[in-house]
Design a protein around this nucleic acid. Structure first.
Lengths: 210, 210
DNA sequence: CATCATGGATAGCATGACTGTCCGCTATCC
DNA sequence: GGATAGCGGACAGTCATGCTATCCATGATG
């Protein structure tokens, strides 16, 4: 198919498709001459993945590029890809990570993980994000919220087991890789949306039962 | 304290403090004349909350303003505040919500909630976000991931019960209100960070046991 | 009394994610 | 075989966000 058809059937405007091409998110089509190129199903699929990562996952264009490069790297072992996906989701840190309070929170985050016996990379971005949140909670005098951490950890551990086995159940590598990325990014969107709905339900039920 | 001290002790640059004042995130200090104003602990606290919502929660300045207006509205019933927080977190939708695929996903989202007996506002933003994610998953041929939805719902329901009762356990309204906001926004950060860590642990454990 | 910070207003800047325009070329439809 | 619509490629322009910088008249402070 031609670029205009790619644009039309994907719903992504033509200038934007060109932009993604320029930015290396979308591989160039098979050139059929100086000013004609052929795109196929794989491009369409890729374009949809890009939009999902941006629109639903909230990734930046740079983050998407990172993820896609990892996806396309056939050598990369699976859980490296996961790490890349996590880095891309994380983006640039906004919080100040130099204060003593943050360092303490960071140590606390490491402790939570260690207590659970989780084997994670010592400088996983998620550890820093957890520290950001813990530090903020303490700074705001909301430490009592930290009582939830164990419940969160328990729940996420159970869910992660399900997710990972679901992805591993797929036979081939390509399907696993895509599942990993979408599971990580879109799964997070599903989880947080459901959390909000559950909160709304529960708070309505408790403040206005019946 | 003076504005410069507020800036110094909060770690937020003076121009930024002025910016937040201009934007109405921070209430003006008690004026002591044409060019002098007095700020207090409440301002410091508020400033820290703003930074937490922006840095950790990822809210936009507009979103923060929305939340704080609700926080300051003493009339607003509790679960309205929750709704406002959810709207502010959600921000402007990025996905296209006019396609038939999206409508189907939206109906599916409503069904998930209804099947659980969750009582939520029929146009809660989280329902749309859930639909965004479901639509993306289907569009990408990753429907099998939707098998997780029930587990997510189950887990979030249990967690929400804990969270809400934790917040309600606080005596006074002001503490509850702040707990609600921080619990919603920062709790989400904690949850997603832990989810990523759990994923990393699990995938490492399954691909490389020992 | 000399400085210096302050409140208030306005302008400027960096980044990110597009969007619009132009150009020379070519496939395709009369 | 000529018109014309679409194409690839290069770039400049746009818009929103979240600050940051400058200026000024005033008044606090040593």
């Amino acid at each position: 198919m031609k670029i205009s058809e790619l644009s039309r059937t994907s719903g992504v405007s033509l200038p934007t498709v060109k932009y993604y091409l320029r930015e290396g998110l979308l591989p160039p089509g098979r050139s059929l001459g100086r000013n004609q190129a052929e795109y196929d199903e794989a491009h369409l699929r890729r374009l949809r993945l890009i939009r999902a990562l941006i629109d639903v996952g909230g990734l930046s264009v740079a983050g998407v590029r990172q993820v896609l490069q990892a996806v396309d790297d056939a050598e990369l072992p699976g859980h490296h890809l996961l790490g890349t996906a996590h880095e891309a989701i994380a983006g640039a840190p906004r919080a100040d990570r130099t204060t003593p309070g943050w360092r303490a929170a960071r140590a606390e985050a490491a402790r939570v993980v260690a207590d659970r016996g989780w084997r994670v990379h010592a400088n996983a971005p998620a550890l820093d994000q957890l520290a950001d949140a813990i530090a903020a909670l303490r700074e705001l005098g909301q430490q009592d919220m930290l009582a939830m951490v164990d419940d969160y950890a328990e729940a996420t551990e159970r869910l992660a087991r399900q997710e990972v086995s679901l992805v591993l159940a797929r036979g081939d590598r390509a399907a696993m890789v895509e599942g990993l990325v979408t599971g990580t990014v879109l799964g997070e969107a599903v989880l947080t949306a459901l959390r909000r709905l559950a909160q709304e339900h529960t708070s309505a039920g408790l403040t206005d039962p019946g």
